[in-house]
Amino acid sequence: MLKINNLHAKLEDEDKQILKGVTLEVPAGEVHAIMGPNGSGKSTTSYVLSGRDGYEVTEGSATLNGQDLLEMEPEERAAAGLFLAFQYPVEIPGVGNMTFLRTAANAQRKARGEDELSAGEFLKLVREKAKTLNIDAEMLKRPVNVGFSGGEKKRNEILQMALLEPKMCVLDETDSGLDVDAMRLVADGVNALRSPDRAFLVITHYQRLLDHIQPDVVHIMADGRIVKTGGPDLALEVEKNGYADILAEVG
């Protein structure tokens, strides 16, 4: 599904190299976790994959089902099935959450040459998904993320993911700031979407989320590289001992 090979990226207007050769492969049907110290390049990886301005890829490649992601506009990557749940979801004043969701869903459908959803169909779909995430109708009417609590913003990201049904879901610290119940809801949301033709890349600092979403593979990122890859046990080890041992081991 997602293949990242030797990806190097620097800041566009500064001589600062952030990604220094990320290599990673997430096959369809699998859930991979990325853990790593603050500032190691986890969010940057997700931004470079989704095409945010401000970064320059200096080497390496990234493909989604064989399509070269780095050649595409951000909206094309989205239509191709890449979704990013933001670490810090953005507020858009005056734009109703519902309007936003529908505009997004239809824009993607259009880009893929599919029929747009009618207002009725869409409303039904949103209500259904919102209910499972415990998002009330009031929140759907409010402007996108404006005045949402931290946890509400994160749940809203998962709602968007559930509606857009992407192929490749990248979740950047979606668990941060969630209370225990909300964490459950988010995990359930992710698990409900798990399927043989979908893959997840879950960036997290905590084992807690991984208790609910069983990852197939865990990667450790440090200083712009994946330094270690292992099974679910690797996350438990980090939880117990921190990164010091692992970092010492890889030098």
């Binding site: 301005d53 951000p74 858009i92 004043p93 734009v95 505009t103 824009a107 880009a111």
Partner: peptide, 25 residues
């Protein structure tokens, strides 16, 4: 804001229209 919209599949011009209509709501 623009990047957030685009990551959701909304093209740049449409995203601007959306944001501006929100501003002028």
């Amino acid at each position: 804001q623009l990047f957030y919209c685009r990551q959701r599949g909304i093209g740049e011009e449409e995203a601007i229209a959306l944001i501006v209509n929100g501003f002028a709501k």
